[in-house]
Simulated scan of single mutants.
Amino acid sequence: MMGAGLVKAVYARWASLPHAPFRALVFMAVTAKDEDNPPCFWGGRESLALALGRMAPPPNDDDPEVIKERRAAFASVDRAVKELTKVKAIKVVEAAGHYRPAKYALNVLRDSTTLNVPVAPRSA
């Protein structure tokens, strides 16, 4: 099952988060698998931007306005992820790499107070 139980857990545990980080965490939870321990999200910045109500234009468009819009969408994602990391709702398990999104462990279950997940070393 994809994320239904995790979404309920987000509402129960993290409802006091600010709007954008909460939306991002709910999106991460709905796309993670309930049975994974810990549940993980690796959907990428484009999908998180969409979860925050922003469309990230294609990266191959050289129009300055498109570039500005894409940067703004990713800045909103970065702010939400930073807040979620700060409050320990998520932990980076694998940093993003060349054409590979970051992988985040979700700390949404009531009995989980810390994420004891090994962090993968950064690849060169």
Rank of each mutant, 00 (worst) to 15 (best):
M1A: 13
M2A: 14
G3Q: 05
A4S: 05
G5E: 11
G5L: 02
K8C: 02
K8I: 09
A9S: 09
A9M: 07
Y11R: 02
W14M: 06
A15T: 09
S16I: 02
S16H: 08
R23H: 11
A24M: 07
F27T: 00
A32W: 05
A32P: 02
A32H: 04
A32R: 04
K33G: 14
N37G: 05
N37V: 11
P38I: 02
P38W: 01
C40E: 15
C40K: 14
F41N: 00
W42S: 15
R45S: 07
E46A: 14
L48P: 00
L48Q: 05
A49I: 13
M55L: 12
P58H: 10
N60T: 15
E65K: 11
E65P: 08
E65F: 11
V66D: 03
I67V: 15
I67C: 07
I67L: 06
R70C: 13
R71N: 13
A72M: 07
A72T: 10
F74T: 06
A75K: 11
R79Y: 09
A80K: 05
L84A: 07
T85R: 12
T85S: 15
V87N: 07
K88H: 11
K88G: 11
A89K: 08
I90F: 02
K91R: 04
V93F: 01
V93H: 07
A95L: 05
G97H: 08
A102S: 03
L106Y: 00
N107D: 02
V108S: 00
R110Q: 12
S112W: 04
T113F: 11
V117E: 12
P118N: 06
V119D: 02
A120V: 12
P121Q: 14
R122P: 06
S123A: 00
